[in-house]
Computed example of a mutant assay.
Amino acid sequence: MLTAPPAAAEQSTVEEAADPVRVMPLGDSITQGGSIGGYRLDLGTKLRAAGRTVDFVGSLADGPSSMPDRNHEGHPGWTIAQVDANVVNWLRTYTPRTVLLHIGTNDMYGSDPGGAPRRLSALVDKITAQAPNANVFVSTIIPIRFADATVRNYNAAIVPLLRAKGAAGKRVHVVDMYPSVPVSDLPDGIHPNAAGYSKMATTWFNALNSVPGSVGDPQQPQPGGSCTATAQVTGDWNGGFQAEVTVTNPTAAALTGWTVRFTLPGGHTVSQLWGGAASGSVVVTNAPYNGVLAPGASTTFGFLAAGSGAPALSAATCA
């Protein structure tokens, strides 16, 4: 796609997160994405899961309230010329390291679709002049059901213009978005549904990953310092007790695999365990289905312990 009794929890040391990479989603209503947050919702999720610390920037904020990062510069109904008239101020204000530009849809049914490639070229030149060190990803636009030939002509014209800028040393990267979204994912013929936006997010994500530094480097947790474990006794009876352990990933990077260690009271052994695999007294590793934890995510495992004496657990450690 791209060219150019409850036991106390013990928290281990977590690597300090790097400064987030400022990414500006730039364009029209397809960037704004309506109430579902457009491609920005799934793209943010993919980047965080890949250990990328990014901050979407812009003067607007849209999407569901649960969306962690809602900022952007997607202006519904805007043409290339309208973005061009405002982009320098936005770049000065938000200083993005990376720009994601999808623009031209509204020009396709305007008065001069034939001049749109020239206008886009001038806009990209303005962006690279104002922010020469930023990576500027410029995509072909997605289909329009009732103007497909016009869209295809526009996309065919802009690709060589953009590639020439990259060949001249500008940090301009072409992303072929057009084939990513089928017309069947455009309920009104213009704007994607959630499935279409998710496909756009995948294409952006793959393009960003292909350019080193465009979204920083994945955060690597320090050895032995990637998760926390909170253990508690949830029930007891004469001859045993039940306990539950919550494993949490507090880092900015996705966690793949975890190991929790704790000890049982003398004479107790684990008689049954779910949500993990146990060995020793006691080491529990993740089950196949719960080993991957996104940033901030948690999972639990539980067990039954048999033995005499009061129920208790040591402080649990996690790595």
Rank of each mutant, 00 (worst) to 15 (best):
L26T: 01
L26K: 02
G27D: 09
D28H: 08
S29C: 15
S29D: 10
T31G: 02
G33V: 00
S35Y: 11
I36P: 11
G38K: 02
D42V: 14
D42R: 08
D42W: 10
G44R: 00
T45D: 12
K46S: 06
K46G: 13
L47T: 07
A50T: 08
A50F: 12
V54Y: 15
V54N: 14
D55M: 13
G58V: 04
D62E: 15
D62Y: 13
D62C: 06
G63M: 14
G63K: 03
G63C: 14
P64Y: 06
P68T: 12
H72P: 10
G74Y: 12
P76C: 00
W78G: 02
I80K: 00
I80P: 11
Q82N: 13
V83T: 15
V83Y: 10
D84P: 09
N86T: 14
V88E: 15
N89L: 05
W90S: 08
L91F: 10
R92S: 08
T93W: 02
T95G: 09
R97D: 10
R97A: 13
T98C: 05
T98N: 04
T98Y: 15
V99K: 03
V99F: 08
G104E: 00
T105D: 01
N106I: 01
N106P: 05
N106T: 01
D107K: 09
M108E: 05
S111W: 07
S111N: 05
S111C: 06
S111K: 12
P113I: 00
P117D: 01
R119T: 07
A122N: 15
V124F: 11
K126S: 03
I127A: 00
I127Y: 02
A129T: 15
A131L: 03
A131E: 05
A134Y: 05
V138E: 04
S139P: 06
S139R: 03
I142W: 08
P143I: 00
R145Q: 04
R145D: 06
F146Q: 10
A147I: 01
R152G: 10
N153K: 05
Y154R: 02
Y154F: 08
N155W: 04
N155A: 08
A156M: 06
A156F: 11
A156T: 15
A157C: 04
A157S: 07
I158F: 04
I158C: 02
V159Q: 07
